[in-house]
Design a protein around this nucleic acid. Structure first.
Lengths: 226, 226
DNA sequence: TCTAATTTGTACGTATGTATG
DNA sequence: TCATACATACGTACAAATTAG
């Protein structure tokens, strides 16, 4: 076992890279079926076993879903979302939200230090979208705008790792918001809470930003087990 | 394409689950070589293609490293730690610590609510270990006790996901603590700060616990870029 | 250089699930 | 309802490349 592996890239790994490129470049759009195995074998010039290993790797990471007897579909454009979805399944909603509170709080704190005027304008626009969607009873749009707002706060934190985590978790939290909305009596997290947070970030008030996050998510937590 | 997949679990996926179990249970220790393909084919009762697909999936997620002509080695005990190691390489220490502040804060908050007398006794014992190791100039033991303390707080939070994240990040943070210790003038994070946190948890004082975390990590952050 | 162990890549056959007419 | 086509799932067998000693 040498210390300098220098192992030339395995063929299956190279094929994985090519498939990932097809997805990320948009050549294979989301939710679409990719070409069948025989066709890919010919176009990539590899055997079936090699191709299947590459597909399995991407399927395990959540980018592809293989439906036996049907075909293989593009389910995500990034690999981290697979691990995020599995974590989400293996833990209770309550525990996942508790972790999110920690990240939300830190994103809010950092945003009070690093947010630009452009960041704040984008937040306000998303909150307006969120408000309009709720009034129009367009719940998918409401959930999307809600999450886009939180993701925008993470971006404004100036911490790319934090932002990457939010992007990765986006799918599961978006679905979760929709599920909560369907519960009887749920009237949406008050828009005042989100406005408070945007105000606090604009005012560079760290304590107010943190307090706002705690209030908003404590409200959300009440609905988890109902 | 139906909206309810309802596909029964694929065999390769089941094998992936079993391999993951071998690693997480510690049956295959970290950095060790796992049995060769023919042996696994016999013990798991599957063909080589199926086995290789499962191995490729775990290798792609970072838990296994396959070395051609040598063997396959365990590189991480969970998929999160594989992602964690990749994240650690791709981001600055400052940004990683900022994320850790968010998790530490939440762990401390939850610990004030859920910590048992046993938890608190364990924390005190680890702090004593940490103190003694520093006085004895045993820096590896000091770094281990320091991290064990934080991991114990996460365990006391009663949130298994949060604790899992700490275990996954353990390796990289432990190395990081040692690296900081070697810098000239570093005198260790004052033990008073950790005692404060333990006191706050025992007193169920959420605000004091959060404030203590902020003070401790602001101190640590000062040394990152030196 | 040689040998043994290991993973790698390929080819083919059969079974099984899914969609569609 | 049934039959057909298509796609993936799984297994076996063999040759090649790589590494450790």
């Amino acid at each position: 076992m040498s210390l300098t592996p220098s192992h030339r890239p395995a063929l299956a790994e190279e094929v994985t890279r090519q498939l990932r490129g097809m997805i990320q470049s948009g050549e294979w759009p989301l939710q679409e079926k990719i070409p069948a195995e025989p066709e890919l074998m010919a176009s990539l010039g590899v055997s079936r076993g090699t191709l299947r290993e590459a597909i399995k790797a991407l399927a395990h990471s959540g980018m592809l879903e293989v439906r036996r007897g049907d075909g293989t579909y593009v389910r995500a454009t990034s690999e981290i979302s697979g691990a995020a979805q599995r974590m989400y399944k293996e833990h209770t909603q309550e525990h996942v939200v508790e972790v999110r509170v920690g990240l939300d709080t830190q994103a809010a704190r950092l945003a009070t230090k690093h947010a630009t005027a452009e960041d704040i304008a984008a937040m306000r626009a998303l909150l307006q979208l969120r408000h309009d969607a709720w009034l129009a009873a367009d719940y998918p749009a409401w959930a999307r705008a809600d999450w886009d707002f939180h993701e925008r706060v993470a971006l404004a934190s100036g911490n790319p790792l934090l932002h990457q985590l939010y992007v990765s978790f986006g799918g599961v939290f978006h679905d979760d918001l929709l599920r909560q909305q369907r519960k009887a009596g749920f009237n949406g997290i008050p828009h005042e809470g989100h406005d408070e947070l945007a105000d606090a970030i604009e005012a560079r008030d760290e304590a107010a930003a943190v307090a706002s996050v705690y209030r908003n998510l404590d409200f959300a937590a009440e609905w988890i087990n109902k």
